[in-house]
Structure formats: C-alpha cells, structure tokens
Amino acid sequence: MSAVNLIAVFAENQLGQMGRITQVLADAGVNIRWVTIATNERLGVIKFLVDKCDLAYESLHQKGWTASLVEVLAIEVEDKPGGLHTVADCLARNKINVENSSGFVSNNRAVLLIEVQDVAAARQILTKQTLRLLSQEEILTL
C-alpha cells in the first residue's frame, strides 16, 4: 500500500505566513484538501494534504520555503458514535504511540490521519486488524 504524504512547511509563527504559502500553492495549481497547523511559540509547521505533492514541494522549494514530506497513515473511521473510539482503542491495544493526529469527514466518510514514529511497523500491525488504511489515491478521491 502506498503511503499518504503530507507536505510540511517550516514557517515562523507570524501574521500572513499562511497566505504567502497558499499563494505559492495556488499559483502552481495545487489543490489543498486538508490543512493542519502546529505551533510552539515562534516555531510553526503547516501541513497540507494536497493533490499534487511533488509539485507542491518543488514550487515551495523554488520560492525559498523550507518544506518536507511527512508520511502519515490514513485510517478510515466509521462515521457514527463510537467510530473514533474503535480506532483509538485498537491503536492503544497495539501500543502504537501517536505523535500527531487530525481527522476530517468527506462525503460521509471519516478519515483519521496519524503520525507515528515507525510508519512501516504501525502499518503492518493495523492492516492485521479490521481497520482499513487508505492510499494516497483513495484519500484524494473521497
């Protein structure tokens, strides 16, 4: 299964930074499907799920931004009460420590994105469970 990549951008936590980055992506014709921002005082990292990851990386890099790809796991979650709990429970039982996570619902399908230390190991464990992992193509066509 191909991994799901987010594009992460290092930006100082200050006014207007987000706009400067989204401008670059817009100019390059990159569509943003999902965004999450992590900050710690002046440090800021903005992560995007985009349709054209490599193009996004190239365009940002060319404009002088510091970017990196981050591999995440996308887990499909049942869009009903207890859906997220089933996943969280499964992660905990299998001792998968989640560093960052975010989630969204699209067309009645819920997705949880998780960042873990060892993506390959986590993927192996999770595929043995009843949980469904989505590929980059699948998540972009939701």
Binding site: F10, T39, N40, L43, T66, S68, E99, E115
Partner: peptide
C-alpha cells in the same frame, strides 16, 4: 537558521533542537 536538511516536518523535533 536551520539547515535545509534539518527539517523533517515535525514541530516537536524543532522544539527539541531549540
């Protein structure tokens, strides 16, 4: 300034380096 290769997309790692 961070080195170009020093960024892996995780704010926690930046905080730790700081």
């Amino acid at each position: 300034e961070l080195a170009e290769a020093g960024f892996d997309g995780h704010v926690e790692h930046l905080t730790r380096l700081q």
